[in-house]
Every structure is written in structure tokens, then in C-alpha cells.
Design a protein around this nucleic acid. Structure first.
Length: 359
DNA sequence: ACTCTGACTCAAGACGCT
DNA sequence: TTGAGTCAGAGT
DNA sequence: AGCGTCC
């Protein structure tokens, strides 16, 4: 996901940044400096790449593919007849993360001494396993599915960027379940009903209705039964809606077990000359910047991994306005469930966040 | 009057100088 | 693509 | 904070 957003966002004159040979460098730029910043704040990150998507997702993916193709056509057309703005707009829509982008990012991480793993399928599921096993402190993702995959802690907006508009959120699964007064199975059912990546959403059922239905009936089986037997035909389950399969994916995703040798992660010193070769010689980055960045990395490898997260959490404002704002948001969306959680986390843990992003 | 969903819109990353 | 925010209209 | 620049 982040590679994608780098490709979309890191631009100049509507074009992605490129080396002089015309290869895109936006993803490397984004990865490099974000990772640097994270490390510089005392976090030892572990990256998880997506593997092959589960079969259940193929329907969704096919739709996306079709939309991309459509966007490509519009992009071509815009280049002929449209304004510069239109061209740029469609250009962003046609962005795809390629195998090459992924491989270059991995090469970059290797040179930086940052470990990573390629998940068998969904990265979020793998993150959850590693977090649950204590290999890392938490799973950082924007995707709420991470909780559904049973990660004990989810961090959102972990970018440490200067102009982070969103504060870092630390969401604890146990508190979330507690707040909802649900067990994990119900929580999974709720998330499926709310609309997950694998299934079409049920029309007319939004966050509130979903929550109510699960509360009233307990399980998806019962909910579906209720909906289908409702004489008023208020809701309609989509034709092809294998919710059991989706549930199975959340309960037993295809992941690398945490005690697998592949999950024996090491944070190492950066290969400075390798970085220079790659980023400067091959991709045209500024040598001074790369070297000073590499130096920072080096320094941080030695530094005892002491948390500096506090410094960032303290920035979270707590005015009355802010609180109101949170309350309002708190009442919406899937996030609803979890955001409620976040509120707790905020009012309580605020500054307590420890950042052994791993041990 | 109030609640809820759905449709629409917009922006999207990080650095460093002023 | 995603999310976040806003708005209108249907339903209760 | 705003804005040009990174490649």
C-alpha cells in the first residue's frame, strides 16, 4: 500500500520522479526517507510485503483490473484532447505497483540493513502473526483488517513525517473487543458484514445496522437467516456471498509461522557503498543526501533501541475541540468500532506508548 | 426531527529554506 | 486505489 | 506554515 501511495503522491509537474534513464524513483524516494525517519526515531521496522492474493479476492481484483484499464484509456484520451490537469488526474488513476517496484524496494531495504518478509498471501495476516508472537511490538498499517487478523496492537499513521496531520493511533484489539463487548468470532463476523476486501457489501447495511444485526443475532449465520426470512425483504444478501470462506481466511490465513527460520529477523548496518551505487549511480539521487542518510542509519544501529515515541505522542492535542472531534468521528464507520478504542488509547495511554517496535 | 446510507469530492510523500 | 469529509434523500 | 524541489 505504501509503495502505491508513493507512486501516486511523489511527483513533480504531474510526473513521477525519474532517474535520467527514465525509470521511476518515487517509490525509492518515499521508502528511503520514511524508513530513515522511522529508524531515526528509535524504531526498528520490519517490512512485510504482500504475497499472492487469496483466491477469494480474485473477484475484487478483477474489478480493479477492469477499472485500471478503463482509466488507462481515459488517460490516453486525455493526453490527446484533455487539459494538463486531466492528464495528471488519470495518470494517478492508472498507477500500478509492478514486480520491479517491489524488487527495487527490497533491494533498498537490504542495503539499508532493514529486514523484511514476503508474506505467503496477505501482508496484514503475516503482520498479525508476527505481532502476536512478540516478534514485533505492533503491526503498523492503515488497514483495519489487521485487527481482524488478530494482531494485538495496530498502529496507524506511523510515518513520523513532519506534517503528519493525523496523530499516530495505537489500537489494542483486546480493548476494542472489550469496548464492543464481543468475542473475536463476532468481531470477525461484524467486519465481514461491514464490508471486507473479499466480499461485496450488503446494500443498505452500514456500520450501525451491521453492529445492530450482529448484536441481535450473534452470528453471521443467524443474521443471514434473519435477512432471508424477513417478510419485508428489507435487505438482500448478494448472490455470491461466501461469508464462511471469508471468515475462514480471517481465522486461518496462509502465513509463515513466527518460529519459521525465515522469521529470524536481523537489523544490520547499512551497506553505504551499496546504497551509493544503487541510489546515486543507478538512480541519480544526490550523493551527499544519500551519504548523510546512510550515516544516520549507521548511528542508529549502534544506539541502544530506546524509545523516542513519547516525543511524538506528546504532540497529540487534547483540547476540547479535539475531543469533540474525536467523539464525532467515533460515531462512524468500521472505524467506529475501532476508533472507540482509539479514544481510550488516547485518553489513557497518551504518552505511555513504548516503542520497542520489536524487542 | 432524527438516523442512516450512499453518492460525491478531494488529496495523496518528505525535505529544507524562508 | 484508499480515506476522509460533506451533503441529500429515504426511512423511521 | 507555505512552497519549491527532490529524480
Amino acid at each position: 500500500m505504501s509503495i502505491y501511495s508513493f507512486l501516486v503522491a511523489v511527483r513533480s509537474d504531474g510526473q513521477q520522479l525519474m532517474s535520467d534513464t527514465g525509470e521511476t524513483t518515487s517509490h525509492l524516494m518515499g521508502m528511503f526517507y520514511r524508513t530513515l525517519r522511522i529508524v531515526d526515531n528509535g524504531i526498528k521496522p520490519l517490512y512485510v510485503f504482500d504475497g499472492a492474493p487469496p483466491k477469494l479476492k480474485s473477484g475484487e481484483l478483477a474489478k480493479r483490473f477492469a477499472r485500471k484499464n478503463e482509466a488507462s484509456e481515459q488517460h490516453e484520451e486525455a493526453k490527446e484532447t484533455g487539459t494538463a490537469e486531466e492528464v495528471e488526474k488519470f495518470s494517478r488513476r492508472t498507477v500500478r505497483v509492478t514486480r520491479e517496484h517491489n524488487e527495487e524496494c527490497r533491494r533498498l531495504l537490504r542495503l539499508m540493513g532493514i529486514p523484511f518478509i514476503v508474506a505467503p498471501t496477505e501482508a496484514e495476516a503475516q503482520c498479525a502473526v508476527l505481532a502476536r508472537a512478540g516478534k514485533v511490538y505492533a503491526a503498523a498499517s492503515e488497514d483495519m483488517d489487521t485487527l481482524t487478523f488478530d494482531s494485538p496492537i495496530l498502529l496507524r499513521h506511523l510515518t513520523f513525517s513532519e506534517q503528519r496531520k493525523e496523530p499516530i493511533q495505537e489500537i489494542h484489539l483486546d480493548k476494542t473487543l472489550e469496548g464492543l463487548n464481543m468475542d473475536r468470532k463476532q468481531f470477525i463476523d461484524l467486519c465481514i458484514l461491514l464490508g471486507c476486501d473479499y466480499l461485496d457489501p450488503v446494500p443498505k447495511i452500514g456500520p450501525n445496522t451491521a453492529l445492530k444485526l450482529i448484536r441481535d443475532h450473534g452470528t453471521l449465520e443467524k443474521v443471514v437467516e434473519f435477512i432471508e426470512s424477513d417478510p419485508k425483504k428489507k435487505y438482500a444478501i448478494p448472490e455470491d456471498w461466501p461469508y464462511q470462506d471469508a471468515r475462514e481466511l480471517f481465522l486461518h490465513p496462509d502465513v509463515r509461522s513466527a518460529d519459521d527460520p525465515e522469521c529470524d529477523f536481523k537489523w544490520e548496518a547499512p551497506d553505504v557503498e551499496g546504497l551509493v551505487q544503487f541510489l546515486v549511480n543507478e538512480k541519480g539521487f544526490n550523493e551527499d543526501r544519500v551519504r548523510s542518510a546512510a550515516q544516520k542509519l549507521q548511528k542508529n544501529v549502534k544506539t541502544a533501541q530506546q524509545s523516542r515515541l513519547e516525543g511524538f505522542f506528546k504532540a497529540i492535542p487534547k483540547t476540547e475541540d479535539q475531543k469533540k472531534d474525536l467523539k464525532r468521528k467515533h460515531e462512524e464507520k468500521v472505524a467506529d468500532a475501532k476508533k472507540k478504542k482509539k479514544e481510550d488509547a488516547k485518553t489513557k495511554k497518551e504518552t505511555k506508548a513504548k516503542a520497542h517496535l520489536n524487542s
